[in-house]
């Protein structure tokens, strides 16, 4: 059986990290994702935009007092992509 290709959008350390975190929670703030993935704000922000453009996550920008607040959530589409990615991974590993 031919191996399926891995979704390049997910096949990157930071984006995969973010998606795995969002898989397990209801929603997470930018600072939480930054802390857990050990990334820089600039890089994280770029990767979040990529995931959002693909429709994998939604990004909500609000304010907490005077501070800007960015909250991310995984979408149904993102969940499906993540599941497909994991299933494809299983094929690689099972081979």
């Amino acid at each position: 059986m031919a191996l399926k290709d891995l979704d390049p959008l997910l096949h990157s350390q930071l984006r995969l990290g973010v998606m795995s975190l969002l898989m397990s929670v209801e929603s997470a703030e930018f600072t939480y994702l930054k802390e857990k993935t050990n990334s820089t704000a600039g890089n994280l922000s770029v990767q979040l935009d990529k995931l959002s453009e693909a429709g994998y996550i939604t990004i909500e920008k609000t304010f907490k007092g005077k501070k800007p607040l960015t909250t991310c959530k995984i979408t149904k589409h993102g969940l499906k992509a993540f599941e497909d990615y994991v299933n494809t991974l299983k094929q690689y590993i099972g081979k």
Binding site: S12, Q13, L16, G17, S20, M23, V25, T37, L89, I93
Partner: peptide, 23 residues
């Protein structure tokens, strides 16, 4: 290069999910 092999991917997923647990 910087991308991951399947085992690294799985390790990453597992460790992130573990981080989010117990919260």
């Amino acid at each position: 290069n910087e991308t991951l092999n399947p085992h690294q991917s799985l390790d990453l997923i597992t460790s992130m999910i573990r981080q989010a647990k117990g919260n």
